[in-house]
Amino acid sequence: MSWNVAHRMTPESSEREIFSYSGAVSAGIVGATGESLRARLAMLNVESQRARKVFSSFVELAYNIIHHGEPEGARDVKIVRCGSIAVWEAGQRYHLRSQSLISAVNAPPIRQRLQALRDLTPEQIRFEFRLRLTNLQYAADDSPNGGAGLGLLTIARNAAEPIDFELSPVPSHDGRLQLIIHTVIQ
């Protein structure tokens, strides 16, 4: 993937890489890579609650690529979305970072949702999650592709600090933007 910025996805040398994937992202690939990540976390004896948070955040980041990503090739060709996801450990904290292309049309609501999550306290995130889970505040148009918005809330709920994100133009990709999401789990 020529748009991939490798230094943003590669952990520093003092950090321990746990898992990384770059390429096509589909439900089957999420299942296979998720199982590989789960096995790697078990092999490293990661405490079960932390491993569950890392795993569920990984899955949600991957599905974010599937639901909101743009194909790397021509827009009129319906191909599997492409992206990158990395997991690494640094000082008893687990970092997850995803990278994908998104449509410029989808960027404003995604940016708005991510910024709103950054502004919520952990208590507000848990409350919002429960409301969405019970469908009390469900609105089909909250995200560009509909849905209850539980994926980003799950990531925020698992995080030790606010989700970091970056949206930047990719000149060689016809107005599409690169979306990078970074989260930290303690």
Rank of each mutant, 00 (worst) to 15 (best):
R38Q: 15
R40F: 00
Q112F: 09
E128M: 12
I66P: 14
G31F: 14
A32I: 10
Y138F: 15
I163H: 09
M9C: 07
L150P: 05
G23M: 06
E35D: 14
R75D: 15
S48I: 13
Q124S: 11
R93T: 07
E89W: 04
F55I: 13
E15G: 10
A32F: 13
D76Q: 14
A148L: 08
A148F: 05
G151H: 01
L44K: 15
R126L: 14
E17N: 05
N45M: 03
Y21T: 06
V170M: 06
R118F: 07
G146Q: 09
R75P: 14
G23W: 07
G28P: 05
R126Q: 15
G28N: 06
V105W: 04
L133S: 12
S103H: 03
S56F: 11
T183K: 10
L179H: 01
G73R: 00
Y21L: 06
W88R: 04
T121F: 10
D174Q: 15
A159D: 02
L96K: 10
L167D: 08
I29Y: 11
E161H: 02
L152A: 05
F58T: 01
R132Q: 05
I85D: 10
P122V: 05
R130D: 10
T10N: 10
N45G: 02
R52N: 14
G69S: 04
A148M: 10
